[in-house]
């Protein structure tokens, strides 16, 4: 083989001269690799019973949210009956589920709303808040973390001081103030949650990319001439992606809890039904002291189920990304 040295300095000369007919289709290949990775992660994730059950719960809630108009028996914000003087009635119908002879599956509220239908439509609000807030917090946090961790120095300092500032603000009170200023609208609540929640994702992703960017494979890419964006997108992002998913799934649960809390305080959107506003109404009408437990127990259970499912899925994914926890 050593004789080749004299004739040609490159072992690729013949390839460059002749060209080659065989070329792997890049997109097909990328797609196949992604599918394999996802399949493997899915397999690991659904291996655990608690994760499987949680996924069923979440899937169930999603179906309910999508088909809410078909499942709900009444309009959620339509009074089912009027009091004698046309004023707000302070009387509730007991649930037919318990044998009462009415058409209301879970009874009605003191305002005359059908609880079952409210519960169904409340799923929409909960999932909307959870998903939108989680996607944006994980997305913004990851982007900021990657940029801060990769560039370091002044960029890092500036971005992390913003994060520090946000860390100084307590979650619930700040959201309350923001919603009070912006107006009680579901989208304003989501916005307020996003503004406050990307901080923790950004911190974690930053610390990850700080250590990743010093790894030799990043240096190797630099030596090969890769630009900043190439390194961030090909080398840093794929390695922090599991962490992003993890924080995203926790973010869903946090956002739902926070929205319920804000609504319970009375800063919820009066024009949409959410589990939080149901709880708030039941408190306002002292449902507890009247023994009308069917008003506040169902939304409480729903919140609990969805939040616990979110955490369990996150936890299951954490075990995949961090085998030390197993």
């Amino acid at each position: 083989m050593a004789q080749e040295e004299q004739s040609s300095r490159s072992i690729y000369t013949d390839i460059d001269d002749a060209g080659s007919d065989e070329e792997i289709n890049k997109w097909q290949r990328t797609f196949r690799l992604w599918r394999e990775t996802l399949k493997e992660h899915w397999g690991l994730l659904t291996d655990e019973l608690s994760v499987k059950l949680s996924m069923l719960v979440v899937a169930g809630f999603m179906l309910i949210a999508i088909f809410a108009p078909f499942i709900a028996t009444h309009q959620p914000l339509q009074r089912q009956y009027q009091g004698e003087a046309g004023i707000i009635i302070e009387d509730w119908v007991e649930p037919s589920l318990l044998g009462a002879d009415t058409e209301y599956l879970l009874g009605t509220t003191a305002e005359g709303f059908d609880i079952f239908s409210q519960l169904i439509y409340g799923t929409r609000a909960a999932l909307l808040v959870g998903l939108v807030a989680a996607i944006f917090t994980a997305g913004i946090g990851t982007l900021v973390g990657l940029v801060a961790g990769y560039y370091g120095g002044k960029v890092d300092d500036a971005l992390m001081r913003i994060v520090d500032f946000l860390y100084g603000m307590p979650l619930l009170p700040t959201v309350i103030v923001l919603v009070a200023v912006l107006g009680p609208d579901l989208w304003n609540i989501i916005l307020a949650l996003i503004v406050l929640q990307w901080r923790s994702t950004a911190r974690v992703i930053r610390s990850q990319s700080l250590s990743l960017r010093e790894r030799p494979f990043v240096k190797a890419a630099e030596v090969a001439g890769a630009g900043d964006w190439h390194i961030i997108s090909r080398h840093l992002a794929p390695n922090v992606l599991p962490m992003t998913f993890l924080y995203g799934s926790f973010g869903i649960a946090w956002a739902i809890l926070a929205e319920a809390g804000i609504s319970f305080i009375g800063l919820g959107d009066p024009n949409t039904v959410s589990w939080g506003t149901m709880l708030q109404a039941s408190r306002a009408y002292s449902a507890l002291s009247f023994g009308a437990w069917w008003w506040f127990v169902p939304p409480g259970i729903c919140i609990g189920l969805l939040v616990i499912s979110g955490f369990l899925i996150g936890r299951g994914y954490e075990e995949i990304t961090n085998p030390k926890l197993q």
Binding site: Y12, I15, D16, G19, E22, E23, I24, A221, A224
Partner: peptide
């Protein structure tokens, strides 16, 4: 990175 043909 360097746009060199005949990758495979």
């Amino acid at each position: 990175i360097h746009d060199i043909p005949n990758e495979t």
